[in-house]
Design a protein around this nucleic acid. Structure first.
Lengths: 193, 193, 193, 193
DNA sequence: GATGAATGAGTATTCATTCAT
DNA sequence: AATGAATGAATACTCATTCAT
């Protein structure tokens, strides 16, 4: 059957991505071999190269595939209507929603981003870039005061992202979304809003 | 001449550690080759093995050497006198002091710790373990209220550690210690203290 | 063409075994490098590891492959019908037959056996174990007299195996099988049979 | 004290030889590292090179030191007075005497001799060369009959040397010298003398 | 004589990638 | 699309040997 063959192909790629993701998070990209990936996905090693140009390309594709929709979401939030705190909440809420759907993927995204620095094309909206622009604007309008925006961004980023690390290391129970109100409360206090 | 007296052996080991540290942070342990290290330290590859049992042992030694004194410091803080906020400030202050002395080393310690999970012997005091015990005690005495201590720990950890990441990626200017008052203010607000 | 059909994989493994055998006998296992083997077999060094887990595994497989059928043969002789001298003759005759087919292989087996002691699983029939059991039984039935069986076994083993060494060092002309009658005559004299 | 220093040197060389001998027999020359030897002899690795030009030279010296007096003994026996059987007995007797003094050394000599072929200078009297010349002469004088001398030599060599192997593998109890009469009886029977 | 740090060539083994089937 | 044998460059690590002290 034709559809069977079609699906086989699609499925194979999906299996490769899923297998690779687990391994990349577990042992890091460099320490994961193509053999590991092929075995976990139950395909031949050569098959990886039917779907991806290289191991690196596979790693990058997983990152981009996840990050780029979120980046677009962040760009929309930045340009949209709303107060500072509403925009921060929208960003964090979406991050936790995505994280809860696939925690492994987002831990991968978080470490990939810092580990390999900015493999994301320059100009892409990142949590850092968007938060920074929001805080700077709010400082200008007097919405917040007495704060170095760059320091503020890092404090906020830490508050939002570190709980995700907690979930992966089983210190915090999934899902993360229900924690949003508590975290937002803390953020509001920090910003005195 | 004074410099003439320095032992060759000690110097070589020190050069290896310094070269490895830079490379480990830059590209990760797995992606750093013994050849890289030897070239950077300007010694023969074989020389690495006169001072360390393996590349892994070198990586572990760098971590332990840095982390274990800080861990002992944390343990002393935990058992010592003082309010919650004083203890948090003491821990963070010491961390920033050490970080400012050698930012690379402490970025390495932070990533090594999470990357390879708990290569630190079980029972060792970590920022997470100490903060958790402090918050739990404070919750019991009513010093703080309405907070899941585990979530609280991750929020605080994020607030303290993320600025260090900012320094390494050149978003925040070193040194970090002068930022302590601002960060402690934010923490006090979060804890409503 | 018929030769076209031969599987590449099988051939490669066979070429590796043959190349390794020559080198192992010539210079010993330890002194033979994987590079030597690969060059002699005209394959890449990495190819060795597609067929064998390690150099040691290759060495062991060659030994087992040759020795284990002979060991089974010895076990059958031991349990079968016949006089002492008939059984000794059967064992020696089979050894010489195999030796004449591939002298190198059997020199390898002889040295491997003693060199690495008993890599052969315990309980395997060896020339020593079988001859010893035969001599002990014959001593009990009175078939032979006045002899320490253990000393006797070593004398007989030396008589049977040392001529094979002579062939390899070109002191005796191959094949060895035609020498069997003379050697058996000597053995009969020693045993006074 | 002067003599103390002198003896220290001599002792060091002796300790090196003894340590190396054990290791060479245990694991083979190639598989024995200079580090192994230095550790076993409790000296620094560099010290080996005060006493020997190379690891190979050390291995060769051990062999020559043991073998060459025996070789001279064999040459004297060959040229001396006596019947065939007396000369064989003298050779074997001396071999067993030396073997009993230091079994390890003589196992080493036996394997070194065959392993590295003829590192002994050409023209040196070896058990093989002497036995061959004796048997050939005896065949000419009619002392023995109906025998290919080369085959005969290998049979006799096997009968004499294999028991030594038995001792090393703990199948036969040391010392070997008391076995000489039984072995000579067997040899006499083989030669019909 | 003795040391032990240092070397550099070499070792077994791994691995991302290719390619004929 | 998929396979898996083959590759060759690279890897962590070893080792006999040297040499300043």
């Amino acid at each position: 059957m034709i559809t069977h063959i079609e699906k086989r192909g699609t499925k194979t790629k999906q299996r490769l991505v899923e297998a690779a993701l687990v391994l990349f998070v577990e042992k890091g990209i460099a320490a994961t071999t193509t053999r590991d990936i092929a075995q976990a996905a139950e395909v031949a090693e050569g098959t990886i190269y039917r779907h991806f140009e290289s191991k690196e390309a596979l790693a990058t594709e997983i990152f981009i595939e996840a990050f780029s929709p979120y980046s677009k979401f962040l760009a929309r939030v930045e340009k949209g209507e709303g107060t500072l705190i509403e925009k921060i909440e929208a960003s964090a809420s979406q991050f936790y929603r995505l994280f809860d759907e696939n925690p492994l993927l987002w831990i991968y995204v978080m470490t990939y981003q810092t580990g390999e620095a900015s493999k994301a094309p320059a100009g892409t909206a990142t949590p850092y870039s968007v938060l920074l622009s929001l805080l700077k604007k709010a400082a200008k309008t007097g919405e917040i005061k007495n704060f170095d925006p760059v320091l503020g961004v890092h404090i906020l980023l830490g508050m939002i992202e570190q709980p995700a690390v907690g979930v992966v290391y089983r210190e915090l129970k999934a899902p993360l979304s229900p924690r949003l109100p508590d975290i937002m409360l803390a953020i509001r206090r920090v910003l005195s809003l």
